[in-house]
Design a protein around this nucleic acid. Structure first.
Length: 293
DNA sequence: AGCTCGACCTGCACGC
DNA sequence: TGCGTGCAGGTCGAGC
C-alpha cells in the first residue's frame, strides 16, 4: 500500500504517458475492483482527453476534458506499469514467466493516443476507480471529509493541536485517520513518530494544550514533512510489491528507521534501545521504547 | 460522536 | 513437496 509518497511518485510517473493524450482504448477485464467499476466505464473514457493528473490524499486524480475526473486508489497492492504500443519491450509470440504471472492481475489497460499502454495490476483488489464530476469532487463522499495535505502550508503545529484537542485515541491511530491529515499510512506514521520521539500509544490530546504539548506538535509536523518529502525524493518505498511505474523499485526502505526493524538497534544517536513491534488496532507498530516518549 | 474490530482478497514467507 | 499459519502499504461499516 502505497502511502502518500508512493501515490505521488506514481502520479508523476503517469503524467508524461497520459497528460494531453486521448484514451484510444480502455480494456476492463473484470466488473469490479474493491467496488464495482462505474457504469459504462469503458465508453465514458474512450475518446476523452486527459488534461492533467494530480494527487489528493492517496488518490490519483486524472482530469478529463469533459468535466469528469477519473479517480483511482491503489489500495494495498495496486500498481501501474507503462509500456508502449510499439517498441522493443513487446515480444510478439513470447512471454516470460514474470510477465504471465503479473498478467493474471492486470485488471484495467488504458491505451493512450501518445502510444503509451498503462496497465493497472492489483492482486488484492483493495484499489478502486470511479468517475466523478469535477465540480462535485470536493463534495463527494470520498473527499468531503479528507483532512489537510501534510506537505501544504495548511499543516502547522497550531492546526495539529486543534485537531488533536480532546481526542483520546492513540496518537498513531489519530495520524492514520485520513480525516485529520491526508495520506499518512502505517509506515510513515511509524517513521514520523520515531523522528519526533513520540510514543505511538500516547493519547492524541497530548499534542494540545501547554507549551510542552505545542512543542510535540511542532516536532511532529517537522517529522511528518521530512519523512514524506524525503520519501518522495527517493521515489517512494519499496516494500514487497511496490514499484515505480518504470518498474524500478523505490529505495526509501533503506531509510526506514523503525518500520520492519523489530529487534534491531534504534538508530538514534546515543540511544541504546531496541526496536519493538506491537500490534495496535490490528496493524504492526514499530517504535523504540527507549527514546519515544 | 468516538472508538475498536472484523471484513474485504491474494500472495508470500515461514515452520513442520 | 505440501499444508497450515500469520503477515502485508488501506478503508469501510457494524456494533459498542
Amino acid at each position: 500500500m502505497p502511502e502518500l509518497p508512493e501515490v505521488e511518485t506514481v502520479t508523476r510517473g503517469l503524467t508524461p504517458a497520459m497528460r494531453g493524450h486521448r484514451f484510444v482504448r480502455v480494456e476492463q477485464r473484470r466488473p469490479n475492483l474493491r467496488f464495482p467499476l462505474p457504469e459504462r466505464f469503458v465508453t465514458r473514457l474512450e475518446g476523452r482527453t486527459v488534461t492533467g493528473l494530480r494527487r489528493r490524499a492517496k488518490y490519483i486524480l486524472v482530469d478529463l476534458n469533459d468535466g469528469e475526473v477519473l479517480v483511482m486508489h491503489l489500495g494495498m497492492s495496486g500498481r501501474f506499469t507503462i509500456s508502449a504500443t510499439s517498441g522493443e519491450d513487446v515480444e510478439p509470440g513470447g512471454f516470460t514467466l514474470a510477465a504471465s504471472t503479473a498478467a493474471t492481475h492486470d485488471h484495467i489497460v488504458f491505451t493512450l493516443s501518445g502510444g503509451a499502454v498503462v496497465t493497472y495490476n492489483d492482486a488484492r483488489r483493495f484499489g478502486f476507480m470511479d468517475l466523478i464530476a469535477a465540480d462535485a469532487l470536493d463534495r463527494h463522499k470520498l473527499f468531503r471529509d479528507i483532512g489537510v495535505e501534510p506537505l501544504s502550508n495548511a499543516l502547522h503545529a497550531g492546526l495539529l493541536a486543534e485537531l488533536a484537542h480532546g481526542r483520546s485515541v492513540d496518537l498513531k491511530a489519530f495520524l492514520m485517520d485520513q480525516r485529520q491529515i491526508a495520506g499518512l499510512g502505517n509506515i510513515y506514521v511509524c517513521e514520523a513518530l520515531w523522528r519526533a520521539g513520540l510514543k505511538p500509544t500516547r493519547a492524541a490530546a497530548t499534542l494540545a494544550g501547554r507549551a510542552a504539548a505545542e512543542a510535540r506538535a511542532e516536532a511532529l509536523v517537522v517529522a511528518i514533512r521530512g519523512v514524506l518529502s524525503e520519501a518522495i525524493e527517493a521515489g517512494g518505498s519499496s516494500l514487497r510489491d511496490y514499484k515505480q511505474v518504470s518498474g524500478e523499485l523505490g529505495y526509501f526502505q533503506k531509510a526506514h528507521a523503525v518500520y520492519g526493524r523489530e529487534a534491531e538497534p534504534c538508530l538514534r544517536a546515543g540511544c541504546t534501545g531496541v526496536v519493538r513491534r506491537q500490534v495496535q488496532a490490528g496493524r504492526s507498530t514499530f517504535f523504540c521504547p527507549a527514546c519515544q516518549r
